[in-house]
Design a protein around this nucleic acid. Structure first.
Lengths: 157, 157
DNA sequence: GTTGAAAGTAATCCGCC
DNA sequence: GGCGGATTACTTTCAAC
């Protein structure tokens, strides 16, 4: 799907305010409501927009701690990976998980209430996952940036 | 702010569908529209809901590669950290960045179109940031989980 | 791409139970 | 917490340009 500047402007706006009304969006990017609505339809149907989500405050919900955990499995067979991934998806404290190249197989970001809560997660979830042989936890002292998708500003230039 | 099961149900729903209408939300959680609207107001004003965002497909936008970069600075003075953080916030390819305890000072997640694009980002942004003395890049082979906030299901129990 | 209009739906705010 | 009502605003669709 070919996107032009107007599409990027729509995406940029919607990324910053996912609940903006079609009319406000149309006005902001300088398009009529009908044209704006049609483009938005296209962007949603084509999969460029995957969905809309409320962003909750982990802190306000009592999860003031973020851990970044590097995990290695005992083998890299697709079956082992699949079993581990199915397990990690079930853990509600997992914010993100990527299969990686390099020293560790997975990098996992975890939200916890506090250190004690992290110990519980570590024990009940992480060490209980299939094929795990090595776990290395680091803790975030501060969140500097946290976005789901990258800023699309560069494409606007 | 004290949250009850109804609040968690609202949050859970809104996290999955950030554009749901108040009337649909009210029906889903079994509340009248006015009560639902009042609670939502509170959740937004109290900061539990930080905002609403469209989730864009990095892949569809041409950014098919995710890198996780560990960065160390030459010193951990607050001034150095602040300067580095100001710089990293400016980079549009940065998805997340955390100041860490442990071996590296920062863990940064970066979206890139491809390896060539990553090399450009590495050269133009990462190595150009103030006080950086060590950069270690790993690449994601697969995204297993990616959420902004943790699932709040556990609180529903 | 635009405008304008119609019809349906939703949000907001009210007082009251 | 629920209900009904009134007002205002938004969405969607359509026709015509």
């Amino acid at each position: 799907m070919a996107l032009d500047r107007i599409d990027f402007a729509i995406l940029d706006t919607l990324q910053k305010d996912g609940r903006i009304s079609n009319s406000a969006l149309a006005e902001k990017i300088g398009l009529s409501q009908s044209a704006c609505s049609r483009r938005l339809d296209q962007l949603e149907k084509s999969g460029v927009i995957e969905g809309y989500h409320a962003r909750l405050s982990n802190g306000a919900l009592g999860h003031k701690m973020t851990a970044i955990v590097h995990i290695s499995l005992s083998g890299q067979f697709e079956k082992s990976l699949a079993e581990f991934e199915a397990a990690i998806k079930r853990c509600p404290n997992v914010l993100s998980c990527h299969l990686m190249s390099g020293e560790y197989d997975y990098v996992v970001r975890i939200a916890a209430k506090d250190l004690e809560d992290y110990e519980r997660i570590h024990k009940e979830w992480l060490t209980a996952m299939p094929h795990v042989i090595k776990i290395n936890s680091s803790f975030a002292l501060r969140e500097v940036v946290d976005r789901t998708s990258m800023g699309i500003m560069p494409e606007l230039a």
